[in-house]
Amino acid sequence: MQQQLAQLVATAQAESKSVTNRAEMEAFKARVVGPNGSLTAAMKGMATLSKEERPIVGKLINEAKKSVEEILAALLTKIEDAEIGSALGTPLDPTLTGNETPAGFIHPLSRTREKILNTFKKLGFTIAEGPEIETEWHCFDALNTPADHPARDMQDTLYLPKSFRSVDAPRRGEEALVLRTHTSSVQIRTLLNRKPPFRIVAPGRCFRRDAVDATHSANFHQIEGLWIDHQVTLADLRGILDFFVKETFGADAEIRLRPSYFPFTEPSFEMDLRSPNLGRLSNRWIEIMGCGLVDPKVLELCGLNPNEYSGLAFGLGLERITMLVHGIDDIRHFYNNDLRFLRQFA
């Protein structure tokens, strides 16, 4: 009997080797443990045995059964492996690449804009916006630049026809509509709509009637800053700008405030930057933004009492800063959108 059972297990072991799929496995399983299977037959034989023989043979049969179950389990694993393998197909070559779309690139102007806005956010400045087509009043008059003021010659303006009506910038009177020449118009919209104190930065697109060349563009971007509160001082202005420059150009960048003129600030300054890390432009003063204390006349025109409130304002050119930070030599690159340019700043 013992020999017979060993033979049975050995046969099952041998036969299992030739089983290659699930159907064959089921047939094989039936031949061994099915109702007419060989192991089943051996178990049925138990009934004919004597009381003394039964425990001994029973033990032998149990061992054989356990062996058969192990054979079947191993067979199942083998068949499943084969099935998974054929479902997955050819093994992976981990070095192969396809034509999957990689992540795109943020435009360098957007990247710089976000960095600058974040810098000012740290100082409590939040973002404000205004329309690109503005009334002359918001763009000039309210900024203390009345018609026929020579400061209007400082920039050449693009006008919209008299018939043009803007939903976003309704005329107050008979004034013309313009493509805003600076984001300073957002100063006015903010002063009219919000109660001080506040600190805002206004990023946006501006326009000048300029021929396009390496340093001029028919449209460009500015970020305007305005802080209105009781007793805002020149020391505040210097502190803010110092922080901005160090965040943007590194700790060894320095600034100087050079007296200048804007109709809407008094005193007015150009802020110059000097840094050892600007390539060909290193270690010399470079003009990067206009700034100053808000002219009391502007506060008055917007209905604020200049004896109660004061403020500081600044406006920087986004293209200019981005060109300095990355050493870009031609403003037109920003508007050509050649991927060989764009991918350098990802």
């Binding site: 795109g104 957007s110 326009f207 028919a218």
Partner: peptide
Amino acid sequence: LVGAGFSECCHYTL
């Protein structure tokens, strides 16, 4: 959109 594989452009308004 950058995550979806698009690269950002900046064109003239005029």
